[in-house]
């Protein structure tokens, strides 16, 4: 490698290092803006904004879904295993919505109740055939989805 090329290589590496550092600091400063949702713990601790729309993310609490008999409205608890927030929603739910699954809901806090205008299902990174899922459920007494989500956190 000639000295000139070596010099240019060092310049390229310096450019990359400087850029990576700049981007790191920028993203670090914007951390709160880049996060898509607030966790129930953050909301209970009062970190979420009041009077404006924001997103909440977590698991649908087991056994917490209460559907209305007359219309499409329902209530369910969203938890991050430490804290839980009750979410109210009227509308069509995505296919993957079920107890123990991740959800991200957009809405506002009203008297401690999260009134959602949109509910999205969060998919986890596990893929398996139905019979394997059944076998795991048998082995773990239906706790599969919980353990998978705990392992992720």
């Amino acid at each position: 490698m000639t000295p000139k090329r070596r010099q240019r290589l060092i310049l390229v590496l310096l450019l990359l290092a400087g850029l990576a550092l700049a981007v790191f600091f920028t993203l670090n400063a914007l951390k709160h803006n880049i996060n898509l949702f607030f966790t129930p713990s953050q909301i209970v601790a009062g970190e979420a904004p009041e009077g404006v729309s924001f997103r909440i993310g977590g698991m649908v609490q087991d056994g917490s879904v209460q559907r209305s008999d007359s219309d499409l409205s329902l209530q369910f608890g969203v938890t991050d295993t430490a804290q839980a927030v009750t979410v109210k929603y009227t509308g069509i739910l995505p296919d993957l919505f079920r107890e123990g699954q991740g959800v991200v809901a957009l809405g506002q806090l009203q008297d401690g109740l999260f009134v959602a205008s949109e509910v999205l299902a969060k998919h986890d990174e596990n893929y398996m055939p139905p019979e394997v899922s059944e076998a795991l459920k048998q082995a773990n007494k239906g706790k599969y989805s919980d353990t998978a989500n705990e392992a992720k956190q």
């Binding site: 995505p94 296919d95 993957l96 991200v104 949109e118 999205l120 299902a121 998919h123």
Partner: peptide, 12 residues
């Protein structure tokens, strides 16, 4: 759209 419930979201 069918799984999450939306075509697009501005997540990271």
């Amino acid at each position: 759209k069918p799984m999450w419930g939306t075509y697009w979201i501005w997540d990271a």
